Computed example of a mutant assay.
Amino acid sequence: MSDQDALTPRVFLVRHGETEWAKLGRCTGITEIELTPEGTTQVSSAAALLVGAGKLLDPSRLAHIFVSPRRRARRTFELLMGSPSPGVTDWEQRVTYTEDIAEWDYGDYEGLTDGEIRRLRTERGLDGEREWNIWRDGCEGGESMQQVSKRLDRLILQIREIHSRYMNGAKPVDVLLVAHGLVLRCFVKRWLGLSVDSPFNMMMAPGAVTVLSYKKNNISEPAIHIGIALPTSEESGKR
Rank of each mutant, 00 (worst) to 15 (best):
I65M: 09
D105H: 13
N168K: 15
D108K: 11
L13C: 09
W21H: 03
P84L: 02
K215Y: 14
E221F: 13
E18N: 04
Q146V: 10
G87E: 12
N133M: 09
T19C: 10
H225K: 08
K189T: 04
L157A: 09
R239N: 12
Y106Q: 13
Q158A: 14
R10I: 10
E234P: 03
V43C: 05
S233I: 10
L7E: 00
F200L: 11
F12T: 12
V11P: 01
S68A: 07
V178K: 05
D137L: 08
A53F: 13
E18V: 04
Y214M: 04
V148L: 14
E129I: 15
M167Q: 11
C27P: 13
W91K: 06
Q158E: 12
H163N: 02
S83M: 12
V178R: 01
E18P: 00
T113V: 10
G29M: 01
Q147W: 00
R154E: 10
R94T: 00
G142C: 02
K171W: 10
G237N: 15
A6E: 07
E221P: 12
M167D: 04
Q4M: 13
D100T: 08
V11Q: 02
E99R: 14
N133S: 08
I219E: 04
M167H: 06
E140H: 09
D127C: 04
Q4C: 08
M204W: 05
E110H: 04
L157E: 12
V173D: 05
K171L: 04
D90K: 05
G128T: 08
V211T: 15
I101V: 13
D153V: 14
W135R: 07
I30Q: 11
M81Y: 01
F77H: 01
T96V: 06
G82I: 03
V209C: 02
L212G: 00
A47T: 06
M204H: 11
T8V: 05
A63R: 09
E235L: 05
V43D: 01
A6Q: 06
S68P: 02
E140T: 13
G54H: 06
P37T: 13
Y109N: 11
L120I: 09
Q93H: 06
K171M: 06
K55W: 00
A205I: 09
V67R: 02
T41V: 13
R130G: 02
R119L: 14
K216L: 10
R75H: 09
L194E: 05
R154Y: 13
R118A: 15
T113K: 07
V188F: 05
T76W: 08
S85L: 15
G142R: 01
S220D: 15
A208Y: 03
E78C: 06
E140V: 15
V178A: 03
L192M: 08
L126S: 10
M202Y: 07
S233W: 13
L177F: 12
I30N: 15
F77T: 01
P69C: 02
G128P: 08
D5L: 05
I226P: 14
I117S: 11
S85T: 11
V51M: 00
I65C: 03
E20K: 11
S213Q: 07
